[in-house]
Write a protein that binds this DNA or RNA. Structure first.
Lengths: 244, 244
DNA sequence: CGACGCTTTGACACAACTCAACAACCGTGG
DNA sequence: CCACGGTTGTTGAGTTGTGTCAAAGCGTCG
C-alpha cells in the first residue's frame, strides 16, 4: 500500500478527510523541496517574519520560547509527519523558535504557496486547520501538565504522550523508543529545573516505572505510569469527518 | 462605519483578510442563531461530541479541563468576539469544557454548517484557521507563563494580556476593567492555589502595581507591571496578509 | 592527556501548598 | 427584623516540593 510518495503527512491528513487524487498530488508536490538542517541549527527564529512552513520528514525538532531573563520553555518536540511553522505563517511572524534537535530533513513550502493552496483546495485547507487544531490540543494538554500536575506526574505524562505519537509514525514500540533528549531540555519542557528532572528520573527508575538513559526510554510498567499520570490516550484519527 | 451587522467577529476576521460583501453576508448569517446561557451553565462538556461552535456576543466564558483527581486547569477566558469550540468541531470531540462565567449571549453554528462554509468560502476558512492559530498562540504564551514565570510574574502577565484583549473589544480602558473572576478561578488559571493568589494580590497591591476587588481591576503602574511580567504586546492585526 | 557535555548527588533556601480559622458579604426564610 | 448558611476573601503556622549552588563522576573526542 505504501509508496514512496505516500508520505507521513498524507497519511496524517488522510485520517481527517479522504483525499482525492488531485489533492494527494498536491501533497506530494508540496513536499518536493527537501532541505537538510544540521543538529542545533535554527529552522525558525522567534520574532522574525515567517517565510515558510516545514514538514518534518526525519529527525527531531524542538519548538521553544525564550524569556527576557534567559529562561526557556519548550512547547513541543516535532517528530516526522509534523508541521512546523504553519501557525506562524498565518500570524505573519513567529512567536517561537524551532531548532533541529538532531540532523533533520524537512520539506519547505513558501508562505504564499501555502496560502494559494488553501485557497484553491479548501479541503486541504480544512485538513491543515484540523492539523493545527490537533497541535493546539496537545499544547493545551501540556498546559494542564505543567499547571496542575506535579513534576513527577508531568514527566510520566510527557513520556506516555511522546510514546503514543512516536508509535503513530512507527518510531516506538509498545515499551520503548530512542530519542535525542537530555535532562536539561526535558526540564525546559516540563518547566522545572534540570536537577529536579534528574531526581524524578531516579524515583521513576527506583519504582520500576521507566528508565531513560543513553538516548533510550524503556517503559517498565505501562499501567503504573498511566495511573500516575492520569493519562488518557490521544485518540487521533478514530473515524473520518463527514466533510462535504 | 459600524452597523448593526458589523459584528466583533467580522471586525476580527477582517483584520486578517479584507472580506468581500458575500463573505460579510455569510458572517452575518452565521451569527443569526442567538442563544442565551445563564451564569454557571455549560456550553461544552469535556469528552462529549462537539455538535456546534459558538461565537460569543456578550459576557465571559471559561474554558477549562478537569483532572481525574478533581483538579481544574483554566485554559482561557473567552470574551466577546471570541470563538468557542471551533477546534472541537474539527477534532470531533471536545478535549475541554466551557461554561458561562456570567450570563452570556452566543451565536451557535452547527458543525456541518461550519464545514460547509469552509468548503464554499476558502477565504473564510483561512480566516478561521488564522483565528484558531491566534488562540493557539495565546495558549502557548499561557504555557510559558505557567512553566517559566513565578506566580507573581504570571499573574501580572495574565492581567496585562486580559487588559489588552478587552481593550480590543472596547471592554477595558487603559487602566481598568470589570470582570467576573474570583480568586479561586484565577488560581486555576495560573496553576497555583487559591490562598497563594490572595497573597500575591496583596503584594501587588502593597507595591502599588494593581488592585483587584469587587469585580474591578485597576492598573496602578503599567510600566512596573510590564517590567515585572516581561510583557510583550499581543501585536494582533498589524497589517493584513496578502491572500490571493 | 585535558576539555567538554552530561549526569548524579548533597546541603540548604525559598516558593508554594495545606490546613485551619475567621471575617465580610450576600440572599433567604422564619 | 434578625438568624442562617453559603460564598468569597484574608491571615497564620507548619509542611513539602522544587530551586540554587556546588562539587564530583564519567563518557567522548580532539
Amino acid at each position: 500500500m505504501d509508496t514512496e510518495f505516500d508520505s507521513a503527512l498524507a497519511r496524517k491528513l488522510n485520517s481527517f478527510v479522504e483525499m482525492s487524487k488531485d489533492e494527494r498530488g498536491i501533497l506530494v508536490d508540496l513536499q518536493s523541496n527537501r532541505i537538510t538542517f544540521k543538529r542545533g541549527q535554527a529552522l525558525i527564529e522567534q520574532g522574525q517574519a515567517a517565510h515558510e512552513a516545514f514538514f518534518l520528514q526525519s529527525g527531531w525538532g524542538c519548538n521553544f520560547k525564550m524569556l527576557p531573563d534567559g529562561g526557556r520553555q519548550v512547547i513541543r518536540f516535532p517528530i516526522p509527519g509534523d508541521c512546523i511553522g504553519l501557525r506562524s505563517i498565518l500570524l505573519r511572524t513567529s512567536d517561537h523558535s524551532c531548532s533541529a534537535l538532531t540532523d533533520v530533513v524537512v520539506a519547505a513550502v513558501e508562505a504564499p504557496r501555502m496560502l494559494e493552496i488553501m485557497n484553491k483546495y479548501p479541503r486541504l485547507g480544512a485538513a491543515f486547520l484540523w492539523s493545527v487544531s490537533q497541535d493546539a490540543a496537545m499544547v493545551v494538554e501540556h498546559l494542564v501538565s505543567i499547571g496542575r500536575r506535579s513534576a513527577k506526574e508531568g514527566l510520566a505524562h510527557f513520556i506516555l504522550e511522546l510514546t503514543e505519537r512516536l508509535k503513530l509514525v512507527g518510531l516506538a514500540t509498545e515499551a520503548q523508543f530512542e530519542h535525542p533528549l537530555n535532562q536539561s531540555i526535558i526540564a525546559d519542557a516540563l518547566g522545572v529545573s534540570e536537577v529536579h528532572v534528574n531526581r524524578i528520573l531516579r524515583e521513576l527508575r527506583e519504582q520500576n516505572l521507566l528508565t531513560l538513559r543513553e538516548g533510550k526510554v524503556n517503559i517498565l510498567d505501562l499501567s503504573g505510569l498511566q495511573k500516575l499520570a492520569g493519562y488518557r490516550s490521544l485518540q487521533i484519527g478514530r473515524d473520518k469527518i463527514d466533510y462535504a
